[in-house]
Design a binder for these strands. Structure first.
Length: 496
RNA sequence: CGGGGCGUGGCUCAGCUUGGUAGAGCGCUUGGUUCGGGACCAAGAGGUCGGAGGUUCAAAUCCUCUCGCCCCGACCA
């Protein structure tokens, strides 16, 4: 409603990001709770769409949803040493239950708990506990669960959607009889994430394996999908972990195999969070505000009626409502913007900053000609096209499909223009000078020491070791920093 | 958690140096005129100046503490 200024990307990318979120009313800092956010209805509607797309695919691949406690006994966290170490610093802890009125009349804490609870930063431990209870035979496997929930990580520095104290996500947890089966699951879910990013968010991603240094605390291997943002930085879009038997051993999750031999289960976990909304914003949005791919847009079409007097108003509103009814019959969400106090131009800006993919203008001239003026969110403001009232659903559907496709292609082209293979340290440093970043495919000698030295020197990190299927490698070479032998190129970038 | 910046009607900010009863623009409400890319006129409503304590006859302003937000770093995904 109120006019919002959006800082241009070129001027201040971080400020632009915040402005887009505010202008589209996606979320805001809670303020009263440090580092936490309030997701406003428009933001949550996008999340619900993402959830629906993921959830459908989880079910199609045999998973069931369940729910586990928000609070985890502190002792659980301690059972897997690496895991505990990895999350120790960011755990919020519940130490008291109940309140009472103190001597000064103020509310104070009452009963101290014998064993404190940790507010879940992730649920491997508590789910491990229940897996141990539920799994006894190879016939109980595989166990394929997922939960949609919120988690808390006490981050020192937060940014809306990208890193907040509390965030919403899904975490899949599975147990298998063999390592091979678990490994298959890890890749299957990684591909689910890739599919949703490509087909729904219209954001191209690169699948890869994390280095030991970047691995999930407690995992054997961590895989990820990495997406390029418009400033050339990378954002980890989702992760899928091969937990090996680490949690099986920590929580004594065992089963008897066909031969009657007892063994620890092989587990996986995989997750994607509200951070996906951050990826969406930074991949597609522009200086005019939010840009949403049609498949995620809570509102697909905004119809703006244009009138000068009551007679025209009646006429254009009637036509607009009719169009809306037809489009809704096709399953689209349509708003007829009949607000009296606002002129058409202001309505255009309003829907644009909210990311609505398509606007239809319906004025007296349009009613006379039986067509509406259609304006795609990603087209130039002068670039409007006529859409006939007749079979409007077919035409609008085609335009929305086209926008979905254009967004993906635009993002893909941007990434192609900003991904480079480099073989000299000087070139490498030049790319990451100041605040610069691209996707750099370069050789690395495989040691954590070199990885950290490169980070120290350039702030770029190894985002992943791309899977062979990504087709980004071209054989062995020499490490860009040390000159030592390297088997393959890895992906470097600054990251969110 | 270290360094820096900022908290004043819904929003952007002025006022603070040099204490003296809180301002502007936008937005909002009402009425009217407008309406094909951010309209205009008129009349209104709206603020314990982030919070607590202190100094003072008097604090948005000075001092101390504290909370929150933003940026850089460290940590993290």
């Amino acid at each position: 409603m109120s006019e919002q200024h959006i800082t241009p990307r070129a001027k201040d990318y971080a400020q632009w990001y915040q402005d887009v979120i505010a202008a589209a009313q996606l979320a805001e800092a809670a303020g009263v709770v440090r580092g936490c956010m309030v997701v406003r209805p428009h933001g949550w509607a996008i999340w619900e769409k993402i959830q629906a797309e993921l959830d459908r695919r989880f079910k199609e691949t045999g998973h069931q949803n369940a729910a586990f406690p928000l609070l985890i006994p502190l002792s659980f966290l301690q059972k897997e040493a690496q895991h505990a170490e990895g999350f120790a610093m960011e755990c919020a802890v519940v130490t008291h239950a109940g309140l009472r009125k103190g001597a000064d009349g103020k509310i104070e804490l009452k009963g101290e708990l014998e064993e404190p609870y940790v507010v879940r930063p992730t649920s491997e431990t508590i789910i491990g506990h229940f897996f141990a209870k539920w799994i006894d035979s190879y016939r109980d496997l595989p166990m394929l669960l997922n939960q949609w929930c919120n988690v808390m990580r006490w981050e020192l520095r937060t940014r809306l959607f990208l890193r907040t104290g509390e965030f919403w996500w899904q975490e899949g947890h599975t147990a298998h009889a063999t390592h091979a089966e678990a490994q298959e699951e890890v890749m299957r879910m990684l591909d689910v994430y890739r599919e949703v990013y490509h087909d729904v968010l219209a954001v191209p991603v690169i699948r890869g394996r994390k280095t030991a240094n970047e691995r999930f605390a407690g995992a054997l291997e961590t895989f990820c999908v990495e997406a390029m943002m418009q400033d050339g930085k990378s954002l980890q879009g989702a992760t899928s972990h091969d937990l090996g038997q680490n949690f099986g051993k920590a929580f004594n999750v065992t089963f008897q195999n066909k031969e009657g031999v007892r063994d620890f289960v092989w587990q996986t976990s995989w997750g994607a969070s509200t951070r996906m909304i951050g990826a969406l914003i930074m991949a597609h949005s522009d200086d005019g505000g939010l840009v949403l791919p049609p498949r995620l847009a809570p509102i697909h079409v905004a119809i703006v009626p244009i009138w000068k007097n009551d007679a025209e108003k009646t006429q254009v509103l009637e036509a607009s409502d009719k169009l809306a009814r037809e489009l809704r019959a096709d399953g689209l969400v349509v708003k007829v913007d009949d607000r009296e106090a606002m002129r058409p131009g202001e309505k255009y800006y309003d829907w644009e900053r909210k990311g609505v993919p398509l606007r239809l203008e319906v004025g007296p001239r349009d009613v006379a000609s039986g067509t509406a003026m259609a304006k795609s969110r990603i087209a130039d403001s002068k670039d409007k096209e006529k859409v006939p009232f007749e079979n409007v659903g077919v035409h609008v559907g085609a335009i929305l499909d086209r926008i979905q496709k254009q967004l993906f292609e635009r993002a893909l082209a941007f990434r192609a223009a900003n991904i480079v293979k480099l073989d000299t340290w000087a070139d490498f440093q030049a790319v990451f000078a100041d605040t610069g970043s691209k996707f750099v495919l370069a050789h690395w000698d495989g040691t954590t020491e070199t990885e950290l030295a490169i980070k120290e020197a350039t702030k770029a990190t190894i985002r992943c070791i791309p899977l062979p299927e990504e087709g980004l490698d071209d054989g062995p070479g020499k490490c860009i920093k040390t000159g030592q032998p390297s088997a393959r190129r890895v992906l470097f970038a600054k990251n969110y």
